[in-house]
Write a protein that binds this DNA or RNA. Structure first.
Lengths: 251, 251
DNA sequence: CATTGTTTTGCATGTTCCTGCATGTTTTTT
DNA sequence: AAAAAACATGCAGGAACATGCAAAACAATG
């Protein structure tokens, strides 16, 4: 196994489990603990994880709380959401995915706009409970904590009964060849159905998410309609995405 | 469990409960009290919390909560919830209704208790997203803002597929003759189904809610199993409720 | 292909850190 | 004032660690 491959595996595990033990990794990857320790130390210095005695934790483990993060909003994500909310028109039925950018989007919906919002994320439902004119449909099902949203058969059954004028997603990874992808199978499964049921798909994400891949593909690029990203995004990547027919807004 | 992980957990608990006891943490985290004390002392020196005899307090009373009401917690409702949470046993499937008392109940579920919680209230789902061992099933449907919960056919369909070992409700009105009732038809409709599907029904509410009526009956008193109320409740009313077979806990 | 240099890895060494227990002290409660 | 709870301290075993070194793996060069 290659060094880089091993370190990728470590990051993946960390993402999934939220913590990792050096001893456990040594067995899993069939190398000595010393090697793992050296990996963890290097990755710690590179600010890819938080090195602690016995293993490592994700960088932001201290406040994985979306609610906390909303107090220190990422200005980029806020701008994406601001651009996104302009696409909404009265009377529409809109799906909003989970994630920080989508949460901003929900927050920014004008209180006097009469639309129906469908979401599997209870945080977004709570956020919208102050919007008197917004009708909220919550997708039920098993609550999947890593993505803060509902997943599973129940969720999909509910989804299939609804058609959306427009759907919004935050981007975890978007790649010209490998499409729009995320870390968890359960998430991908749901999003695929959403895309089938939607007239228009809007994805929002920064330059760091473009030309990146993840394990579970949701859809190829040509299934998407509009990308909201930032000015700093690589112009070559942007142009190639445009060539597939994807409309692009830079903020 | 990693040291850093443990300290994260302590901070989280502190955020949620507003206070922590060293002895309690030792049991929860399965380490000796000495270890907890050392953690607390270190974190105190690092200015992450205020160390006090017996445990620790947050630096400044923060309440990152969505509902404004929670900022001025009603100590009675907190006590009801404390009594309620003692009824939970590992492996159970539990329904938790919406409302302030129920929200406290959710907050107070031990983080190491492995249960399945079903709720139609997204707030409760968010609250429980920190509880690693708790499986959450969110009842979807149309979000009914006055009651901060989901209602409607979709919700009922999901409900009918689940049986509950125990169900918890906050009381809006409980009357010897007119039973357990609420203000909204939609709410009553859901709660009726819940009661059909539950082995045990627990209702929680103060003296002001007893001997009171509201427009939509959920169930007669004899359909309920346990009432958690306060000492100040009228002894005559209590006795008459007892005569119907209702078990009563006063806190 | 052989050689050279670099990087990575596992092992051995000694060190540091974490934890639980025992001891005695302080604080709180009765 | 006595009892109980919470505490501080020191100690010991074990786990995790850093370090140096040599073998192995790899890449690059002639």
């Amino acid at each position: 196994m290659l060094l880089a491959e091993r370190q990728n595996h470590i990051l993946e595990q960390l993402n999934i489990k939220g913590k990792i033990y050096a001893a456990e990794l040594a067995i899993q990857l069939k190398v000595s603990e010393d090697t793992i320790r050296r990996d963890l130390n290097k990755m710690g210095e590179a600010n890819l994880l938080r090195r602690v005695h016995g293993g490592a934790l994700p960088l932001q483990q201290t406040s994985p709380d979306y609610i906390d993060r909303l107090k220190n909003p990422d200005p980029r994500k806020k701008r994406f959401a601001e651009a996104g909310v302009l696409l909404l028109k009265a009377g529409q039925t809109v799906l909003i995915d989970s994630g920080e950018t989508c949460l901003y989007l929900a927050k920014l919906i004008p209180t006097d706009l009469q639309i129906t919002v469908v979401t599997g994320c209870p945080l977004i439902a709570c956020e919208l409970s102050h919007h008197e004119k917004v009708e909220i449909i919550l997708l039920g099902g098993r609550f999947f904590k890593p993505a803060l949203r509902c997943v599973g058969k129940g969720t999909i059954d509910m989804l299939r009964k609804i058609r959306f004028d427009i759907s919004f997603f935050g981007i975890y990874a978007l790649h010209l060849k490998h499409g729009f992808s995320v870390n968890y199978f359960e998430e991908a499964e749901i999003s695929q159905v959403v895309i089938e049921q939607s007239d228009k798909i809007v994805v929002m994400g920064g330059a760091d998410k473009l030309d990146k891949t993840s394990s579970h593909q949701i859809a190829p690029v040509h299934a998407l309609d509009l990308l909201i990203t930032e000015n700093t995004a690589d112009i070559n990547v942007i142009n190639k995405l445009k060539d597939t027919g994807l409309e692009i807004i830079k903020v």
